[in-house]
Amino acid sequence: MSTTAWVDVLSADDLPTDDVLGVVVAGRDIALYTVGDAVYATDNICTHGQARLCDGFLDGHEIECPLHQGKFDVRDGRPTCAPVTAALRSYPVKVDGQRVYLQID
């Protein structure tokens, strides 16, 4: 049986503005993205080349992998540009007061 819980990750003040930040949550390497007022989270490792996406380039809702320039939509993890074909796992995010939480199972 799988259970999910909201995990307190960091202060909202620690989020970058329109950029990506790598964090480790419950033993998982996670990328947090801020786009405008929204916060998104995906696995931080590219499904194609094993590069850390937090080292990539965020352009709107797309993160570009620093290794082979494949792209993913940070809202749902789906690939948007070759050479990536497999989606990233994405995680629900909520900001409550000044704290950022991820839902991790």
Rank of each mutant, 00 (worst) to 15 (best):
S2E: 09
T3G: 09
W6T: 04
V7P: 01
D8K: 14
D8R: 12
V9P: 04
L10A: 07
L10H: 01
S11G: 11
A12N: 05
A12I: 01
D13W: 01
D14P: 00
P16A: 08
T17C: 08
D18M: 07
D19W: 06
V20W: 03
V20A: 15
L21A: 10
G22P: 05
V23R: 15
V25H: 06
A26Y: 00
G27T: 06
D29N: 13
I30L: 09
I30M: 07
A31P: 07
A31K: 05
A31D: 07
A31V: 08
L32Q: 04
L32C: 06
Y33L: 07
T34M: 06
V35Y: 05
D37A: 14
Y40C: 02
Y40K: 02
Y40S: 01
A41I: 08
A41E: 08
A41N: 06
T42P: 06
T42F: 04
D43G: 14
D43A: 11
N44W: 02
N44G: 02
N44K: 01
I45Q: 01
T47Y: 01
H48Q: 03
H48C: 04
H48R: 02
G49C: 04
G49Y: 00
G49I: 00
A51D: 02
R52P: 01
C54H: 11
C54A: 14
D55Q: 08
D55E: 14
D55P: 00
L58M: 02
D59K: 02
G60K: 02
G60T: 05
I63K: 03
E64M: 13
E64I: 10
E64D: 11
P66V: 10
L67Q: 12
L67S: 13
H68W: 03
H68S: 10
Q69W: 11
G70T: 10
G70W: 07
K71R: 15
F72I: 09
D73I: 09
D73L: 09
D73Y: 07
V74I: 15
R75N: 04
R75W: 08
R78C: 11
P79W: 03
P79T: 12
P79A: 15
C81Y: 06
A82K: 07
P83A: 03
P83D: 03
V84Q: 08
V84I: 12
T85A: 11
T85D: 12
L88M: 12
S90V: 02
Y91R: 04
Y91M: 07
P92K: 08
P92S: 13
V93Y: 10
V95R: 14
D96Y: 03
D96Q: 15
G97F: 13
G97S: 12
R99S: 15
L102Y: 12
I104D: 09
I104T: 13
